[in-house]
Design a protein around this nucleic acid. Structure first.
Lengths: 148, 148
DNA sequence: CCAATAAAGTTCCTTTTTAGAACTGACTCA
DNA sequence: TGAGTCAGTTCTAAAAAGGAACTTTATTGG
C-alpha cells in the first residue's frame, strides 16, 4: 500500500494520518497555533526545506486545514491561517505534547507548560468523556467498528 | 534541519514527533492497541512493506514504546507489546481518531465509535484540565516556554 | 522421506521524497 | 541604481519507501 491510499481507508486513524501524518506537517501546524502565518517565518523557525514547506502548505490548504489569504497586493503576498477544521486539531497537538513532556525528556533542560487564559493556572490536559467526565484510557475503552 | 535532529529540540511537540511522527508509526501502534502483536499479522493488515515494518518496530523498541518478547523457541519467535510509555499514547490516537471522524469523512460509509468498557455507552472524547475539568481548546489556553 | 507451509525477517533493485543550495519575480526603500 | 524582502521554484544528490524474492528454522501432510 502506498501512503496516498490512506485517504480512502475506513479507519479514522488512517484517514486522519493521511492529512497530518506526514513528516513536518504537525510542526507546521504547531507554528500556526503559535501565531506564525508567513512562509519566511515558518521556514526559518522550522529549518525545513523551502521546497517541502511549500508542498506541505499547499496540501494543508487543499485539505481545508489552512486557508491562504492575501495580506497585500503589489506584490501579491499570502499568509496562512488555521481554518476551523485546522483549529480542531488543537487537542491532538496538546495530547502529543503532554505525552512527550512526560515520556520523551529533552536533552537540554527546557519545557513547555499550558496555562489557562482565564486564571493563569497551569493546566494538566487529560482526555475525558464529554458526558460523564470519566477518564478515557486504553483500559476502560473499547472500539466498535460501525459498518452500515 | 534533518528529521533526526528533532529528538534534541526543546519543543515537546518536536520531540514527540521524533518518536511517532513518522509515516506508518501511528498505524503500527493503532494495531498494537487493537491487540495485534505479530509481524505477519501487522504486515498483512497494514499493507506496509516488510522492510519498513521491521524498521519501525525496531525503532519503536529502541524508543521504549514497544517491548519485544519471545513467545516460542525453536524457532525463536518474538511478538511486540506496548510498554507503559506506549500505552500512554492512547489519548493521542483517540484525539486524532475523533478529529478524523468529524473532519475527514470516509469515502465508503463506515466509522468507528468508542464505548465505555464499564457501561457500554458511547464515549465522546474531549480534552479537559485534570484539576478544574475545564475544557481545553486553542481559545482558552496559552503556552509558556520554561527555560530554566 | 519429501514437499509445502509458516513466521519473522533480510536482500536487492526501482521509484519517491527530502535536503541543500541557488535562482526567480515582483516589488520597496535609500 | 543597488540592495533587500518575501514567497516561492528549480536543480542535484542523498535518503527513504515500494515491491518482490530469498533465508532460516521448524512443523505438517502424504
Amino acid at each position: 500500500m502506498k501512503w496516498d491510499d490512506l485517504r480512502s481507508e475506513s479507519c479514522p486513524v488512517a484517514r486522519g494520518l493521511s492529512v497530518i501524518g506526514d513528516r513536518w506537517t504537525m510542526l507546521v501546524l504547531r507554528d500556526c497555533f503559535l501565531g506564525v502565518r508567513r512562509f519566511e517565518q515558518m521556514q526559518e523557525r522550522l529549518g525545513i526545506t523551502r521546497h517541502v514547506l511549500a508542498d506541505r502548505l499547499r496540501k494543508l490548504e487543499e485539505d481545508g486545514v489552512l486557508r491562504r489569504e492575501a495580506y497585500q497586493d503589489r506584490p501579491l503576498r499570502h499568509e496562512y491561517r488555521l481554518t476551523e477544521k485546522g483549529k480542531a486539531l488543537y487537542p491532538v497537538l496538546v495530547t502529543l505534547m503532554a505525552w512527550a513532556e512526560e515520556h520523551v525528556p529533552p536533552e537540554e533542560k527546557s519545557s513547555m507548560t499550558l496555562l489557562s487564559r482565564d486564571t493563569g493556572e497551569v493546566l494538566e490536559p487529560v482526555l475525558t468523556d464529554a458526558n460523564t467526565g470519566q477518564r478515557i484510557t486504553h483500559r476502560n475503552v473499547m472500539a466498535r467498528r460501525n459498518t452500515e
